[in-house]
Design a protein around this nucleic acid. Structure first.
Lengths: 339, 339
DNA sequence: GACTGGCACTCTTCTTGCCAGAGTGCTAAG
DNA sequence: CTTAGCACTCTGGCAAGAAGAGTGCCAGTC
């Protein structure tokens, strides 16, 4: 009974604080929740909870606010994520189903997330390292320049322009394209370096400059750009939580501009757990120690290909964020797989 | 003499205010600038300037701050934009010359601008309406889907996926591509709708579904996406001017997320004046009435193709912003033309 | 006629002191 | 284990006063 009620108290504190963003006191708690005991009892529980590190008091005579640990406990406790309403699901469905291509899906997803959660949203493009090459094209642009296009089965397209000192021979190019196509089409991107390594040797030395330039560019693309792209949305929602953390908006904005940081935030794709919540200092990126990240993988044909999520203040509405992120991830997965 | 000194006073007020962001009084003015007259004289001039609407006093006994009109006068007065230092120019050159393709140029440019001006930077991709088609490709992806690629002479690439109910015949596709290529290659994008309108008729009815789907997609791309792309950078600089305008950051962030708004901000490309400054309420976008925009066209081979610029508080350092924007625009123009 | 010094006046901002309110911790009793 | 009561502490808001900054105006000077 005791343990049980303490948990209830913690939950009540978190949900009240999340709603009001103000320290919550013992009296307010018994008023707003049916706990069946008096404020004094709650106070004892609160003292215990504070002792254990789940909540803290900003000063002697304010109410309590949850610590990161308290949020963590709260989040872990919500084992079952509450499902979205039918209307919300329909909204998501409608909004995403108008998308015409991958770029469009990504843009719409990020808007959707930002709008539904009122937080900053981040969506990662399907990782090349988890995709297969669908097609490669070499398109001559002029005498000395050509464009390489790599199309992934996820719909993602990478292009790159190659400058070549010698003039480009269309026949050689077609030959090269054919060989490349045989070597890497339908292969995972991760195997591309291995697959192309012998191609250069099969051309005459005359054509080597062109071939090696192309291959170098391909290698660069598949290695450097492997996970690179992310889109960001809803930055204006940051302004709202200025109210609570006046100081912290700058580092957050800075971090958001760094793609690398964003990618780290979304975390490694491939762990089994789908929905992940990182609270406050649990994420090691400096400048974001007072923000929480709720993220999830999304998949194409049941294989996780990338992550998406939202970033907000630690006192955000976890229940809502978690269910929204999960639902959106599911819808995106379905759309990718259907295509 | 009288008129002349008033102008000097206005200039002094603007430059002091821009530097300190605090109302500037008569005493401070004579201390920091060699005006050769006493504070009392300055006060008379200030009263006159206030009368004419160039400056205003936040309250009875604070110094004066420039009005939008005052900034306007100040900006118009700086006819000759001061050139950047050699070191700065070298920095720009070095940073941009590493760019490998158009995307890269755009990304680097926006970073450069944000960094040099400490403001929010916006760069528009070369407008399709000012570009010519260099090449068109139709790439089959599978039985029912193909990708259209339109490559502009500016290096910009637009791609789009087309879904087709009938299965795609490679021979027809090659034929279509050839005809499209003849029709629109080296033509301005604006003429594409006219050039393709008769192509459909030259195919047998069997192939019409495919052909019309492709043509519809092309039309959509060249019309809807004509000026669409912009990149944004340095949003974290917004946080800094939170200090002065605590309330206004939210609408600004919101406006920045709307591409349409950004495009309107950068203004129509094609007017003769290169460097443009819009101050405060001079720009009609709501929510940005306390920001100024310094923008410039950039060109490819002397034909202006798009704009770039910075957005900042009205009390920004105009001299620096103007010279930086101008210099960066020149460099970008050179890079585009050299390629 | 243009400039200057002086002076009264007006505001803001900072500090101080004070009071009310909220919330706690503790103790003693049910 | 729970509850009521009470003393204690801390914040936040408000008012009053002092200091500082800057202006406007007037009378005098070059």
């Amino acid at each position: 009974m005791l343990e049980e009620r303490r948990l209830a108290v913690l939950q009540a504190i978190v949900s009240d604080y999340v709603a009001t963003h103000e320290p919550v006191g013992s009296k307010a708690l018994v008023d707003r929740h049916q706990l069946g005991v008096s404020p004094a009892t709650i106070r004892n529980d609160m003292a215990a909870l504070e002792e254990e590190g789940y909540i803290t008091a900003p000063h002697t005579s304010a109410g309590r606010i949850p610590t990161d640990l308290g949020y963590r406990m709260f989040v872990d406790q919500i084992a079952q994520v509450k499902p979205l309403s039918a209307a919300e699901r329909r909204g998501i469905d409608r909004f995403l189903s108008d998308a015409v291509d991958l770029d469009d899906i990504m843009t719409r997803t990020v808007r959707l997330l930002a709008q539904l959660t009122k937080q900053v949203a981040v969506v990662q493009y399907p990782s090349l390292s988890r995709s297969h090459v669908r097609r490669i094209e070499l398109i001559p642009l002029n005498e000395h320049r050509l464009m390489i296009m790599l199309i992934a089965d996820s719909g993602r397209v990478e292009q790159r322009i190659v400058e070549c000192s010698v003039s480009i021979d269309e026949i050689v190019l077609a030959d090269l394209r054919a060989r490349l196509s045989v070597a890497i089409a339908d292969q995972p991107f991760s195997s591309v370096p291995r697959q192309v390594e012998n191609i250069e040797a099969s051309f005459t030395t005359d054509n080597r400059p062109l071939v090696s330039a192309v291959i170098a560019a391909i290698l660069e693309t598949v290695t450097a750009k492997l996970d690179e792209r992310v889109v960001l949305g809803g930055a204006s929602n940051l302004a709202r939580y200025n109210e609570d953390f006046p100081m912290t908006i700058q580092p957050v904005l800075e971090a958001l501009e760094e793609q690398v940081v964003l990618l780290r935030l979304l975390g490694e794709v491939g762990t089994e757990t789908k929905l992940s919540v990182r609270i406050g200092h649990e994420n090691e990126v400096e400048g974001l120690s007072s923000t929480s990240i709720v993220s999830s993988h999304y998949a194409k044909e049941s294989i996780p290909v990338a992550s998406l999520g939202v970033i907000g203040p630690t006192n955000m509405d976890y229940a809502n964020s978690m269910s929204t992120v999960q639902a959106v991830a599911q819808y995106v997965s379905r759309f990718l797989s259907d295509n």
